[in-house]
Design a protein around this nucleic acid. Sequence first.
DNA 1: CGACGATTTGAATAGGATCAATGGGAGTGG
DNA 2: CCACTCCCATTGATCCTATTCAAATCGTCG
Lengths: 232, 232
Amino acid sequence: MRSDDLPLVRQLDLFSEMAEKNFEDLMQAAYLQRFPPQVQLITEGDPADFLYIMVEGCVELFASANGRETTMAVVRPVSTFILAAAIKDAPFLMSGRTTEKSRVLMIPSENIRHVFAEDAAFARAIVRELASCYRSVVKALKNEKLRTAVERLANYLLRKHAEQGGSGQLLLPVEKRTLAALLGMTPENLSRAFATLDPYGVEVKGREIHLHQVADLRVLAKPSPLIDDPAS
Amino acid sequence: MRSDDLPLVRQLDLFSEMAEKNFEDLMQAAYLQRFPPQVQLITEGDPADFLYIMVEGCVELFASANGRETTMAVVRPVSTFILAAAIKDAPFLMSGRTTEKSRVLMIPSENIRHVFAEDAAFARAIVRELASCYRSVVKALKNEKLRTAVERLANYLLRKHAEQGGSGQLLLPVEKRTLAALLGMTPENLSRAFATLDPYGVEVKGREIHLHQVADLRVLAKPSPLIDDPAS
DNA sequence: CGACGATTTGAATAGGATCAATGGGAGTGG
DNA sequence: CCACTCCCATTGATCCTATTCAAATCGTCG
């Protein structure tokens, strides 16, 4: 793998405190793969042979049942995904596809489990990471069950706005159809939700969104730290 | 605590493989509390000072936002809850209240974190437990986003039916109002969902449910192992 | 420049929520 | 043990949100 990516991976909470030798062992066994957009990397139900780490690009995690499909999460660098399946040696619960040209580091789950048993610092880091992932999904479930579609969109915009510096504008990180699925609605309904937010100073120019009345939007959205704060 | 409960707790995956001494240390620090029904044990936003273990009874985990409230999960013996918050030393994302007379073992999070750092077997067990919890919530989120209300009810009935022996009947473990919230609908809508399932051989007698045409119900429900199987 | 897919808009429908009122069961107190 | 009461559950009517189907527009990539 490219040498200037290694420090980035090493800096991940998951790897930052483990013994150098164990880190090298993991990287030795790892593959850095490049993918074009719209490539399906993992399929739900398949065995989790690798832990995946986003190095560059974007991956959409999605799930299907009956004839339906929905987006579960959007993963951007630098972070891992499907850690739980890799640890449990269980089948994926979600599928994953690139939405952009991407580079992904793949570490065989077996090596993860092996080093996990050897390296206490790594084991602790995995626990912290898993606990964080767990809490993220709980927040997603609360978001879905406790809010209307418009509220979910409003809070999403506020969250991205804050992430991107809070300058009064933001860029949607994915296509609107994907965003719609992530927020639990149809693309048509997302368009209408944006229209509903127009009186609250939300201006849409393609993927570029301007927030002219953040305070008003916040009144509508009623953000909660226990759903929207990335930390906590 | 009562001596005949100890083996039960010890048999939990979480504790079964740790060193005897560490287990004793944890139990030494623990409190076994009895609670009447409808007592709120934890409140979302509060710091997670204890890990909770259901010994007897039933606890409903719920969450609120805006004026709304929803049930997130129902916890029965013998299992733990809010492990992630205890490990991360983070605020609860959910509140919890007893729905029956219950006995709950409370272990100070500090002790959990301490033994976690000492005992590798315990650390591994925590990882497995967290990974399982994570996957449970992912399944809950898929259930919520990919299915209609009637499908969620049908699959819930099939799941409980299997859990309770598959004899053609089952007993709802909670009040219908709570079940409605758990399945993401109103009590009124749950009544109507049951009525919708009548042609599929679902007979309702209070909390007692009879399934006369399991095969037909299964066709409607289209259960998926990646949502409904407790293992995997 | 042309074609394809994404997005938006409109109209009709369906699913679920809310409001209101009634029946039913469990628990309490006499 | 029985009667009362209260809350849960059900049913009906209506409203609202979101989905579906259809068509037009926009943008982007060859």
